[in-house]
Amino acid sequence: MTNDSVVTIQNLVKQFPVGGDFFTALKDLSLTINKGEFTGLIGPSGSGKTTLLNIIGGLDSPTKGKVSVLGQALNDTSHGERARLRRKYMGFIFQSYNLLPVYTVFENVELPLILNKMDTDERRSMVEQAVESVGLTDKMDSRPNMLSGGECQRTAIARAIVHQPALVLADEPTANLDAENSHHIMKILVRLNQELSTSFIFATHDEKIMAYLRRIIHLDDGEITEDEIIDNPKARD
């Protein structure tokens, strides 16, 4: 692992029990993702991209192999330590937003800061900054049911980046959005990637996302079939 790497995976195998047998979702997979990368895990359904994302996020454990995230070997960490790693250094963006319906935009975005026990004034300033960065300042007091799909996903992005994590994991973040909103969201993420040097890892098969990625890792049947570096992503022009 280099000083610049945020994720290092060596010979990762992940198996799930199916009946009396095992289904191998990831087969002897190795890769390194460096700080500030804007990476996509691309592949058809069942190729293992969500499983890989879950293992990187400490939500699932490897069957074999070594996984190190932000300098911490996940094989040796407890549930509590992995929770702390997610709380402090990671952000998550989900396909279906997963905003808490009884809270306002401000409060949804505030949640990671509350979990990190920040004081009220600091929280307010950081939330306002995050909400402003996704262009939702005028919706601060709205609840999710008053927002469009795009606005909900922008709120989810603000929540993922509010505590300025080193790594953001996004599972199909544009799957529920139309083309215009998808591009809008991706432009916000690119800007945040550039401004905050936050690393992003996407699991997706959305062509629109691929056009923004600087690195595309192709997965098929649990194996990396291609690892592409893109110097000038088309959509960024």
Partner: peptide, 14 residues
């Protein structure tokens, strides 16, 4: 759903 989200955001199970 809420529980899953809170766990993903870094709250411990306990």
């Amino acid at each position: 759903g809420e529980v899953g989200l809170r766990l993903a955001l870094g709250e411990s199970k306990g």
